[in-house]
């Protein structure tokens, strides 16, 4: 099962390595990862998406909690959350296909951020599913390059 874990950590060097090494020791492959500052300069938030068995993940969460640099962990898997990722996709575009591509981007409320004689660069934000969907639709035109950020997530409401 896929899990989204949000970890608040001290904003200092070596933190990511400590966390990554706990995952690798268990043979877990981190599917996506994003790190960034929070409202507090001393604290960063790491959002990790991993695939794994519930029991093993519970053990891993306890191990993460033992790290001195980890302040708080929340498993957002079964929570009401808003989650977003960002992708930049460079698609092959000819005079014939350009307008069709632009229509698709429009439907997904994406943005065209660069155009050249034979390609278009698309910026898209949204849930993982949404980004996957536009990627699938653009694939037949020829994707020259694609880059995706890790997922970020936040629990809804007053939490």
């Amino acid at each position: 099962m896929k899990h989204t874990v949000s970890v608040l950590v001290a904003n200092e060097s070596g933190v990511l390595a400590r966390i990554a090494s706990l995952f690798s020791r268990r043979g877990f492959n981190i599917e996506s990862l994003s790190v960034g500052k929070t409202q507090d300069d001393h604290i960063s938030r790491i959002t990790i998406v991993v695939e794994g068995d519930n029991k093993v993940l519970e053990q891993l969460t306890k191990q993460l909690n033992k790290l001195i640099v980890v302040h708080k962990i929340s498993d957002l898997t079964n929570e009401e959350v808003v989650s977003r990722g960002l992708a930049l996709i460079k698609v092959t575009a000819t005079a014939a296909t350009r307008s069709e591509i632009m229509q698709i981007v429009d439907i997904f409320r994406g943005k065209i951020v660069d155009v050249s004689s034979n390609s278009i660069m698309v910026e898209i934000t949204g849930t993982e599913e949404k980004v996957n969907a536009i990627e699938d639709l653009l694939r037949p035109f020829g994707i020259k390059e694609l880059v995706r950020t890790g997922k970020i997530a936040m629990a809804r409401g007053r939490k």
């Binding site: 060097s13 070596g14 390595a17 400590r18 090494s21 020791r25 790290l67 001195i68």
Partner: peptide
């Protein structure tokens, strides 16, 4: 510190 991360409770540089 890199080498000893998994075998110490904590470490510092």
């Amino acid at each position: 510190t890199g080498i000893t991360t998994p075998i110490t409770k904590h470490n510092y540089l």
